[in-house]
Each structure stands twice: as C-alpha cells, then as structure tokens.
Design a protein around this nucleic acid. Structure first.
Lengths: 147, 147
DNA sequence: GGCGAAATTAGACAGAGTCCAATTCTTATC
DNA sequence: GATAAGAATTGGACTCTGTCTAATTTCGCC
C-alpha cells in the first residue's frame, strides 16, 4: 500500500487536500505546483522522467516551469516521497513506490518494472567500506527480447 | 585474472601487440586509437568515464577525437571487452573487469569499488517478463560517510 | 490586509553524448 | 611495395538533460 491511494470516486478537491496532507507529513510545504507534481506521480504509480512529469503537469495549459519540476523532484527525493531510479544513462526516473523493491529494466524499450523487495534476499554481501554507511541498495535486472 | 595483464616488465611494443590480439579475438579491428583506448582501460583496471578515457589517451599530445572515444567505447561494450556501469546520472563509467561482479558506489565522492560476484547470491528472483531474456544483473550498493 | 520568507519563473548556461560529411587509415590483393 | 575499396576517424555543430540566477510571485502568519 502506498502514500496515496487514488480510487475513481475521490473528488478532485479531496484528492488535492489529501496530497497536501501527504506533503505536509513529509515536511514539504504544499503549493499548487508541488501538489500537481505529486499528483502526476502518485496517480500514475509508474516511473516518470523529469520531462514526463513536466509534460503531465502542463497537459491542459502551462502552469509549472522546468526549474520548478527539477527543484521539486529533488526535494521529494530528499524528503523520501519518491525514489530516484538510475538505469538509463540519458535520464533519471522517479519512482513513487518507496517501499523496498528492485527493478527490471528493458534495455530496448526503456520500460521499468518493479520487483517486490520482500521476496529477494541478497546473501554474502561484504562489509561496507571503512567509515561508510549504506545509502540504498539497487538491484537492476536488465532484460531484452529473447532471440 | 583478466584479458590483459600488465606487468612492469612488458615492453611497450609487446603490450601494443598483445592488446591488438585481444581486440582481434573480440572481433574488433585494431587501430592506433582503439589500442590506446584499450590500454587506458586495461592498464589502469579502474572505472573510467568517457572523458577520463579521452584525457588519458591524449595525455602526451592529442591523437584521438571525442567522437572516436565514444564510438570505440560503445563498440567495446557490444563486443564484451568492457562493461557499462550506470550509477551516476551525469556520466557513464566503463569497467574493464567483465567477470561477474557488483559495485559499491559512494554517492558523495563518486568512487566505485568492485564487489566480487562469487560471494553473492540473490535468492527469490521472480521469473523474467514474458518473452524476455536477462541481459545483465547489476547490484549497486550506494554508500555515504557515516554520521 | 500586510509583511517577510519561501517558492516560482524565464531563459541563459553547462556538460555529456550524438551526428555528419569530408578525410585518412587498414587491409586484402596483386 | 602499390592500389583500391571499405572501414575508421575527425572537427565541429548540434541535441538533450539538468543547473543557475536574478527578478517576481505566492505563502503563511500576525
């Protein structure tokens, strides 16, 4: 289950209010733009790149600048609202699913699919380097069409 | 053990000849530039970005263009001479170690360290998506200075 | 409503990587 | 060793993602 559930019966103003709550709960002051960006991510629950977020948010009429999208995504990552997924050398994806999980990455189509973290154990990891602490474990399985 | 061992006693012309052999063995026609790029990677055995390779190759006097470095690194990846390591959203690293292994990535310093693949088992991986085959498994442990 | 702080903005900028048409090199053949 | 055909290399313009900045707008609070 995730931070925001988006059932079909939620009235738009209630959705905005509940997104506002979620932002506040994570120490993020809610603004129009941040709420729209959060909605773009949480209502889709897929992995979006910054420019996909920009396009989604400005779909009807432009309201949010590129700078704000980048600022906000960075802020959301810091505050733990979304996770960065780095699998593609040309752009970063943002993942509204923050529970521990891993990814399939289709190198041909660019498609990213979640792998539930519960089912996976990684055995035999060596000790972390001296004076370091873990900041995240990303397991990425690259796949392509079978011949 | 790796494709090319570089002991201190190897004469430069022998090193070039043996790199030539390695390239041919992987279906890559040897040229001056490709040999120099291979040497930059294999003599260091560390993870280099494209522009670090460019700088290394042109250290004494410029001899190889940016386009060639990019073309060649892509070719080396296709032919299995080096592996791409995608951990940093701003640049790709190239890893001359092609045996199965994983990486520590220090998010503060950018340092990349190998984790021997022999010691690690990943349990519980789900079936690959329909019609897909694995193209690589990358486990990345992000680390930072402990508080 | 008004004020100070925080957020947003347009657009210039930076850096990694790509593309292209012209040139140069490799290699196979003689 | 010379030649010709194909392969590789080149500079430089270009694209794209992401950053920066100074000016403006909005937010939260009294």
């Amino acid at each position: 289950m995730n931070a925001v559930s988006t059932s079909a019966s939620v009235r738009p103003e209630d959705e905005r209010a509940s997104l506002s709550e979620v932002l506040r709960a994570h120490g993020v002051g809610p603004t129009h733009q941040r709420i729209e960006i959060a909605r773009a991510l949480f209502s889709r629950m897929t992995h979006l790149s910054a420019d996909q977020v920009l396009a989604a948010v400005n779909q009807r009429h432009a309201e949010t600048s590129k700078a704000t999208v980048y600022n906000t995504l960075k802020l959301f990552v810091e505050k733990g609202l979304v996770r960065e997924v780095i699998v593609d050398p040309t752009k970063v994806f943002y993942d509204p699913n923050t529970s521990p999980h891993h990814h399939f990455y289709d190198v041909e189509t660019g498609e990213i699919t979640d792998i539930d973290g519960d089912r996976i154990s990684i055995l035999g990891l060596p000790a972390l380097p001296e004076g370091k602490m873990a900041a995240g474990v990303d397991l990425i399985i690259r796949v392509r069409s079978s011949a």
